[in-house]
């Protein structure tokens, strides 16, 4: 959804779906985005698709950011998108952090994934991409 006024705060949900590991990376991203002036709704580990959709809806976020390090993105993202759509959130884009093979990217964009950030991505690139997606 495009912002009506440029000075409005960008609200982004940062969630970690799936059952794997820790959320250190997601926390680092959350802090960097806060420092870039975003309002980051941080929900933490083991978020189900239903939880992500409920948070995105209630918080009226501009973007949903998912951290998926397990390699399960092709299983998780379509399901999350489906539940988001059921909640009338078709227009809310997803960005993805994790190790995502190049060949998966076209399929992911079908599910409204507007940005994919691998381990080497600079914070500035992430911030710029989100800003562009939101102000589109």
């Amino acid at each position: 959804m495009s912002k009506e006024i440029m000075s409005e705060k960008i609200r982004i949900l940062i969630a970690k779906p799936g059952l794997d590991g820790h959320d250190r990376g997601a926390k680092v991203i959350a802090r960097a985005l806060r420092d870039a002036g975003f309002e980051v709704i941080y929900t933490g580990l083991r978020q189900t698709a239903e939880m992500i959709a409920a948070s995105a809806l209630q918080e009226d976020v501009d973007v949903v950011g998912l951290s998926i390090l397990s390699g399960a993105h092709m299983a998780l993202v379509p399901h999350i998108r489906e539940v988001m759509n059921q909640n009338d959130l078709q227009d809310v884009p997803i960005i993805l952090g994790g190790i995502i093979p190049e060949e998966d990217k076209p399929a992911l964009s079908e599910y409204g994934v507007k940005g994919v950030f691998g381990p080497g991505t600079s914070m500035q690139e992430i911030i710029d991409t989100i800003t562009k997606i939101v102000n589109r």
Binding site: R31, R34, D35, F38, E39, V40, Y42, T43, G44
Partner: peptide
Amino acid sequence: SPFTGGAILGDRI
């Protein structure tokens, strides 16, 4: 944050 204008909203956890 008074310095950056950003915020981490973590109560939902």
